[in-house]
Write a protein that binds this DNA or RNA. Structure first.
Length: 501
RNA sequence: GCCCCCAUCGUCUAGGGGACUAGGACGUAGCCCUUUCAAGGCUAAAACCGGGGUUCGAAUCCCCGUGGGGGUACCA
């Protein structure tokens, strides 16, 4: 493998250059993350740049989504379209003159040429080439038009593009830090369009120009760019610029491992409560910390043990050499696992604050003291934050509707259940406070005196108070519910048990 | 079709010639703990794609095949 041109530990200038055409997804998030980590780790800069050279697909909402998604994930940039920086502007549509200038220099140097071929002409030759089983490529029609003639045709308004004049013989060797040297046969490479007929550059030119002038030292981008990698290197070489280090990241595959995510797949996924879009993950109750941890580990591994990483850990431990070039299938089960881990890692105040919006959304305004109690109760048993509503709903509604058959807990007869409820009522009525000191022993004694299981006593209580067979621990729950409501619900249960027996 | 990338349990991965009876995690199953549900602890089943080389020795290096993925645009 080729030696790195950049010394480890030297400040790196890295960038994330999304095209604002859609909603930010996991793949983008990971690319942004890895770039961010390198910038942080080396004391360099992480740059956000909007690559909006495609007018047709451009969507301003995608820009907003990008910014809010990256911020939510905690991937803050040092230079970008919203905050500017020493190499502004950071939006390619505002840099078109620069690209044109470089393209013209390339023409001047004989590395590019003006092309007047119409799209339909080119489509036809491509069809014929395919029919003859030839390698479809630009036929070279305008390659050798003298510059003066070309300029004349342009001056009379003839529509044109600028194409890169790819060498027709020999090979182009490029270096990827993960894969080593990759060699392409020039005869199979095409004369790519650099400047479109609308005067705007395509990705290939714009990005190389920006990376050069913005002094980017390391390019981490998706593997889908490998096929055009030789073009990119050729542009650098034709201009006599120093190439950055190139790293092509693996792609994310759909959970089945078969193919990358399509639009249809994302819809099917949403129907089953999953999503690859960052903004959805927030709504679904995932922690940005968990998403970061999860995504970081898809395509990168630290050692044979460690899996729990905070952003600080990642900044400290991340390294390009540990990147894995193999495509990775998305596994939402693992996200759930990391989310649980990070929920348990939060302090109670923090968790309480993050839980609050979900309760608010459900129409429950809960004060901070109670929120902390809820956070404590739920911390070990939550996978996603949005579950909070289901867990504590019974504490805030006016009344619950227990079913008779549930109240008659498994292993008890109806009269037994009634007796349990009545004796429980007596205990709870006399207790001055609902806590372990006051309640645990009396309840245990009750179970023993009736010679039934403790779980059965709590079972009756659980159904009476929550109407559900599953709930948070009951003593703490009653503390939040309050004595009045607790006793009221127990009375209702007693009435129900009586009326049915 | 052509070009390119990739290949360890179902999934994410550790591994970079002997330390491999191939380690961890998710998921799955069982047990313990337990007021339900979780969490936590313990245990189990589960993989080096195939074939050739190189070497005293290959999951690790090379070649071929196969499989998967990407690209093949005046999209990015």
């Amino acid at each position: 493998m080729a030696e790195s041109k950049y010394i480890e530990g030297m400040p790196m200038r890295v960038r994330f250059g999304p095209s604002p055409t859609g909603i930010t997804h996991l793949g983008s998030a990971r690319t942004a993350l890895y770039n961010y980590l390198l910038g942080q780790q080396t004391g360099g800069q992480f740059i956000l740049r909007f690559e909006d050279t495609d007018q047709k697909r451009y969507d301003p909402r995608a820009e907003e989504d990008l910014i809010s998604s990256l911020k939510w994930l905690g991937l803050n940039w040092d230079e970008g379209p919203d905050i500017g920086g020493p190499y502004a502007p950071y939006r390619q549509s505002e840099r078109k003159d620069l690209y044109l200038e470089v393209a013209e220099t390339l023409v001047q140097k004989g590395h590019a040429f003006y092309c007047f071929c119409s799209k339909s002409e080119l489509e036809n030759t491509k069809k014929e080439q395919k029919k003859r089983k030839e390698h479809p490529r630009y036929p070279g029609t305008c390659r050798n038009i003298p510059l003066e003639e070309a300029r004349k045709r342009i001056s009379i308004g003839e529509e044109h593009v600028i194409r890169f004049k790819m060498p027709r013989k020999g090979t182009t060797t490029v270096v990827d830090r993960l894969r080593g040297e990759i060699t392409f046969d020039n005869a199979l490479l095409d004369d790519y369009v650099l400047i479109k007929s609308d005067g705007l550059a395509v990705y290939h030119l714009a990005t190389m120009v920006d990376d050069h002038f913005m002094k980017i030292t390391h390019v981490l981008r998706g593997e889908e760019w490998i096929p055009t990698f030789p073009l990119h290197a050729q542009i650098y070489r034709a201009m006599g610029w120093n190439e950055p280090e190139w790293v092509h990241l693996s792609l994310f595959l759909k959970p089945s491992g078969k193919g990358k995510m399509s639009k249809r797949d994302t819809e099917v996924m949403k129907a089953s409560g999953e999503s690859i879009f960052i903004r959805d993950m927030k709504k679904m109750g995932y922690l940005p910390e968990a998403v970061i941890n999860w995504v970081a580990l898809m395509g990168w591994g630290y050692d044979d043990q460690t899996e729990f990483f905070t952003m600080e850990d990642l900044i400290d431990k991340f390294s390009i050499s540990k990147l894995n070039p193999k495509n990775a299938a998305i596994d939402f089960k693992k996200l759930d696992h990391f989310n649980g881990l990070h929920i348990r890692h939060l302090n109670l105040e923090d968790l309480a604050q993050r839980l609050k919006p979900f309760l608010l959304e459900a129409g429950f305004f809960v004060d901070d003291q109670v929120m902390i109690k809820i956070a404590e109760l739920l911390q070990p048993r939550m996978t996603t934050l949005d579950e909070v509503t289901d867990w504590v709903n019974f504490l805030f509604v006016d009344q619950v509707s227990p079913k008779f058959e549930d109240l008659v807990v498994k292993g008890l007869s109806a009269p037994q259940a009634l007796e349990v409820a009545e004796k429980l009522y007596a205990i709870l009525e006399t207790a001055s406070e609902y806590n372990y000191d006051q309640l645990e022993q009396p309840i245990r004694d009750l179970a023993e005196s009736l010679s039934i299981k403790l779980g059965q006593v709590f079972g009756v209580l659980r159904i009476a108070l929550s109407g559900q067979t599953v709930s948070p621990p009951l003593i703490e729950s009653m503390d939040i519910l309050g004595k009045d409501k607790t006793l009221e619900r127990l009375r209702n249960a007693i009435t129900l048990l009586k009326s049915n027996s």
